[in-house]
Computed example of a mutant assay.
Amino acid sequence: MSLQLDTLVTDLMFQASAAIDQKTLIDGLGGPESLENKQLLDVDRLDPRAEMELSPSMPFRRRGERRLMILDEVAITPRPDPQADPLIKTDLRPYKETLITTCAALPIRLGRLFALGSWGDAVLVARSVRDLRGIALLPYALDPQVDVDGKRRSTPLSQKEFEAKLMAFEKRLEELDDEQIIAGLHGITFERRGDLVIVDVLEEDGTWDQRKSMLLEQQLAQVERFSMIPGAPSAPVAPAKPNGSGVTAKAAAVKAPVAEPAKAAPKPKGPPLDARMIEGKIVLVFPAERFDLDVAAALGKRDWEHVIRSSDKLTGEMRDTLQRDGATWIAPLEFLSEVFVEGKPLTKPEFEKTSTTDDGVRSLEVHFPRFGPVTLLEIAGKGRFVTSIDDIKRAATLVP
């Protein structure tokens, strides 16, 4: 089955207790007419590694819960370069309503609307607010450098640590109640319809700015509110008090406490980015400490605020060019298994067998999770890198 970038995906995860026949399923999906010119993908028939590349669902999806994707290649006009253009200009409101109708008619645990090849969701439909948070916590659960407390490390977790984090996933979902999760949503559309809860990031005209999907993910996940002990109720956010201390204005006038000097905000970790202007285009050279899956996702959405810091080596002109035209990039890669080829993590024998070598640079086209197609480079004496730069020889000259 060929899959085209920007294909609109209606992703349905069924309840474990769901037992429906084919007629009921087809009727719940809108009837045979609504499925014309669409592909149905039974995810459970795929190699689990292929699902990880396409759209991971574990550990959110439990044993016995089936998953079905409906692929519509004509709903969205494909963008020439999805990585450089975060805006899907199709009115997705009718597709949102269809998703809601389907979730109401069938025993669906979670329904999603997203575009193939892009990270993030335009619409989420569930029967519990907890499940909305659960799907948003998947990146935390699967990131090999984020520990059980949600803190990023400079090196990957050990297998034991990673397994402990996965074991704590369900407990993390118990820390916030529905009201606490909903209270964390800002700039996001939230509504209830019957027993369904719905969130989306669509604009008023139904278009989708994919950069808002990262905001949705962060606000639902609320990793910053993790309890010290997984599963323990999260401490409520303290309400604002008068004068910031609970002291009335009259009492404060009598004896104003001496304010402590404000503590300087902690400096962001990692060295500054090296940015180059080459033939009128920006190229970002990442050090290892500044590149991870979150940054890759931000690059894919052109969410430069999550990539660039004020301390990075970009002039005002370069920053303007970045916002207008985007950038290409190159970053170090530690493990071959972090990239995929044909739905499978890349192995060293496969890389050596299928890659090409030119002037000491071995290269292979691969898929990088949360970003998309990139080129994997192995440069003699320098290590391995992934890059969005088309010119392999030029890319190789950029790394120190």
Rank of each mutant, 00 (worst) to 15 (best):
E350P: 00
S234K: 04
W329T: 05
G372I: 06
P59M: 08
F385G: 05
T101V: 02
H306D: 11
Q39T: 10
V148K: 11
S337V: 09
R276W: 04
Q159W: 04
G316T: 02
P230S: 04
Q219W: 09
V148C: 08
V74Q: 14
L157K: 06
R62A: 11
P239E: 09
V237E: 12
P233E: 06
S2H: 13
K382V: 04
G360H: 00
G28E: 07
P80T: 05
F226I: 01
L54I: 12
P345H: 10
D81R: 10
A122L: 03
Q210N: 13
A253M: 14
L5M: 10
L176G: 10
Q222P: 07
E289K: 12
E204M: 01
L12D: 01
P272F: 11
K151C: 07
I278L: 14
D209F: 03
A18R: 09
L29C: 03
E33R: 08
Q4S: 13
K267Y: 01
V237K: 13
S34I: 00
K160F: 08
R79F: 07
L202R: 04
S57Y: 07
D85N: 15
L138E: 01
A122E: 03
P156T: 07
V123M: 02
G383H: 10
F385I: 08
V386F: 09
L336M: 07
D195V: 05
L106D: 07
S234Y: 01
R193A: 03
T24H: 11
R93W: 05
V374H: 07
G134H: 02
P230E: 01
E191I: 00
Q15C: 11
R394T: 14
R309L: 15
D320G: 05
E338M: 12
L116P: 04
L68C: 11
F60D: 10
G30N: 06
E170M: 08
L132I: 09
W208D: 00
P156K: 00
R319G: 01
M13G: 01
Y95T: 02
G343C: 09
P349R: 13
I389S: 01
A396P: 03
L166C: 01
M228D: 12
R172S: 11
V341K: 13
D209Q: 01
L99K: 04
E65C: 03
Y140E: 01
P230I: 07
G117Q: 06
L299P: 06
R109A: 09
E161M: 05
T356V: 11
I181Q: 06
L216Q: 09
P144A: 09
A288R: 14
E175G: 10
T102G: 00
G184C: 02
L176F: 12
D27P: 00
K353H: 14
P332T: 11
L173P: 06
L333G: 06
G206D: 03
S17N: 13
T354E: 14
A50M: 10
L29G: 03
A126H: 02
S388C: 02
F340E: 08
V341N: 03
